[in-house]
Amino acid sequence: MKATQNTTPPAQPSPQPNTPSDQQPGTAGPQTASQDSQPRVLLIDDSPDVHRLLSARLRTENLTIVSAANGAEGIKLAAANPPDIVLLDIEMPEMDGFEVLRALKDNPATLDVPVIVISGHSTMQDKVTAFDLGAIDYVTKPFEPTELRVRVRSALRLARLVRMLAQRAHIDGLTGLWNRTYFDSRCAECVSTNDRHSRPLAVALLDADHFKSVNDTFGHPAGDLVLQGIADILRKQCRATDVPCRYGGEEFAILMPDTAPEDARILCERIRNALEKIVWTRHPERAVTISIGLIGSGTRCPLPAGKWVESADKALYAAKSQGRNRTVVADLSSLGPKLAMAG
């Protein structure tokens, strides 16, 4: 592993899949879903009459209706662009609604999409099967238009709440960044992508310098404001594909998929410089700096996720011991082939 300390001004990034100038900054981190976006309804039914009827009856609901005339088409459309809700017929030629429901629930991309079965079958067994397979509601044809509208509305409301809760479970309450749990799962995904597809990856650990003394001298509310200020800088400087997280305490982490180490270093330096320049309202005389340990590889590096974080932590320790307020980069690119041969 080669460790180099960055002291020179940021150089022009070499051509890479994802460079710091590729995307507008300020779009990273958890995004709040737009409340006024039009929900998409995927209707899977082999009867053109039902498509016409439902479109007319749901016209007032401000929905976008996407039509599929059979099960296979419905599964394909749902997987390509998961809708907010699926309205599904049961009796269809070739692939019936139960098979479609099973396929939707087997695919991680469509697993959480709520499905309302709208069927001419009204036996207890059909309803039990539909609910057991994961449907959230069952409406029998011919349907009562007002009842259908409120059931669709209710299912959409519930789905929105579930999505919001799931997202909140991954958001850090103080800073609004992704939390440690989210970092762990995304880090594993990114490392796996690097390993399987030989895609560049960089991981940074950032630690506020002498943060304890900010808390001790100016109080914990001032310390919280510093953490929130750091989070704001991460949000502003990171790109939409970056994953800025609060790792714990005064420590932050950034996953930078498709980013070569040199490009990641430029981004980290921007963050470090931006923080250094902040004049804090509660303690204008006291600047806050950050030390950054950065690890990355432009090619495949078959290390487990834990080792990536451990290496970034070592680089962070080096940044601290070399005097703080700096970025130390550990480039794993040269290690990849050796590890692959050894493995």
């Binding site: 082999d46 009867s47 009459d49 039902v50 009827l53 009856r57 017929d89 009796e91 030629p93 069927s119 001419g120 044809k141 011919p142 349907f143 238009p145």
Partner: peptide, 20 residues
Amino acid sequence: QRLAHQLKGAAGGYGFPTLG
């Protein structure tokens, strides 16, 4: 059977429950 099933499902929706 399929034609009957489709008519059953649609006719009521178009306001013809007897047909359905």
